[in-house]
């Protein structure tokens, strides 16, 4: 649906040259809710703005729905843009127009008959749950309501892609959650592919199925959300995961280990609510002793995601067998190194 092929973006200002993107390769499949996470200045906004040509790539190609938008003439480009909705951190609604007129705008621009506009805007208002606000002005709405209007406006022309640039960053946690659920509903009901960027891992956890982590103009890690949450490879990804999943080894344990090197495993369960059956099976089957250092369950896309950190003691052979057993069960297990 959206494909970045070795995309580079250089900003040339009088004083300096900024390499905002240094060769991005990324594929967003149809139906994905694809999240891009990164710290400020990583190049996230630049990346998303390339999709609807708010920025032009300096090098490489962005293919959207099979087309390279840079190769289109202005008329074709405008037609393609109607298939790509976008919502913004600061909503970007027209303060001089009513909620109704704001949502109607994309339709007015393409010359839709007013009767059709009325119907469509009515539908959209209902979908975002703000039918009663049709005659209000944006100033009279809360942030969450404004973003709903932004969403309704973005959906007006029945796009197949929705771009979200920090769409919830100006909202409080509760409102954020409500807006994210709305995005999820859009993805499910209309089968709209969503590309969103954020600096909050909790947003990714709540609705995304895939994630890319950006740092310094590069995608340093990407994969399914489960993969990245369970097995972050890079330090930055680990930091991001840590902001939502607490799986630290307790300090008290680390203090008491003395000179011996403990064997510690991190086990992730997806979908089941507890690791207990597994642990009891292991201690029955193998001559190992297990003690739980940390256990928690969080939700990723409403699926329970268990995080278990255990210390294993026993002779090496038995320990290795147990490890293999867990792996064979198709459960994600990895050894944790303790350094320092």
């Amino acid at each position: 649906m959206i494909e970045f092929q070795n995309v580079k973006k250089v900003y040339q200002t009088k004083k300096q040259t900024v390499e905002a993107l240094k060769g991005i390769n990324l594929t967003v499949e149809k139906g994905d809710i694809f999240g891009v996470v990164g710290y400020s200045g990583a190049g996230k906004s630049t990346l998303i703005r390339l999709v609807n040509l708010l920025e032009h790539p300096s090098d490489g190609q962005v293919i959207v729905g099979g087309k390279d938008l840079t190769k289109l003439n202005p008329k074709e480009l405008r037609a393609e843009k109607k298939k790509i909705g976008m919502i913004f951190q600061h909503f970007n609604l027209l303060n001089s127009k009513t909620v109704f007129d704001n949502i109607a705008m994309p339709l007015v621009l393409s010359g839709t008959p007013s009767k059709e506009i009325k119907e469509r805007v009515g539908e959209l208002l209902e979908f975002v749950g703000l039918s009663s606000k049709a005659r209000s002005y944006p100033e009279q709405l809360s942030g969450g309501q404004k973003q709903r209007i932004g969403i309704a406006r973005a959906l007006a022309t029945n796009p197949s892609i929705l771009l979200c640039d920090e769409a919830t960053s100006a909202l409080d946690p509760q409102t954020t959650s409500a807006v994210l659920q709305l995005l999820k509903k859009i993805n499910k009901e209309y089968n709209i592919t969503i590309l969103l960027i954020t600096h909050e891992m909790s947003v990714i956890r709540e609705i995304c199925n895939k994630v890319a982590v950006m740092e310094g103009g590069r995608v340093v890690e990407q994969g399914s959300v489960f993969e990245v949450f369970a097995k972050p490879q890079t330090d930055i990804a680990k930091n991001f995961v840590r902001t939502v999943i607490h799986d630290e080894i307790p300090q008290s344990f680390l203090k008491n280990i003395g000179s011996y090197i403990p064997i510690i495993w991190k086990i992730n369960f997806i979908g089941t609510t507890s690791g207990n059956p597994l642990l009891s099976t292991i201690s029955k089957k193998f001559d190992v002793h297990l003690s739980v250092l940390s256990a928690n369950i969080s939700e990723i896309q409403e699926t329970p995601f268990g995080n278990l950190i255990i210390e294993v003691t026993g002779n090496k052979q038995e320990v290795d067998k147990a490890y293999q057993y867990i792996k064979d069960e198709g459960i994600l297990v990895q050894e944790v190194q303790i350094n320092g």
Partner: peptide, 9 residues
């Protein structure tokens, strides 16, 4: 920017 994203002339 919103206008440009909508494909306004």
């Amino acid at each position: 920017e919103a206008a440009q994203a909508m494909g306004a002339t």
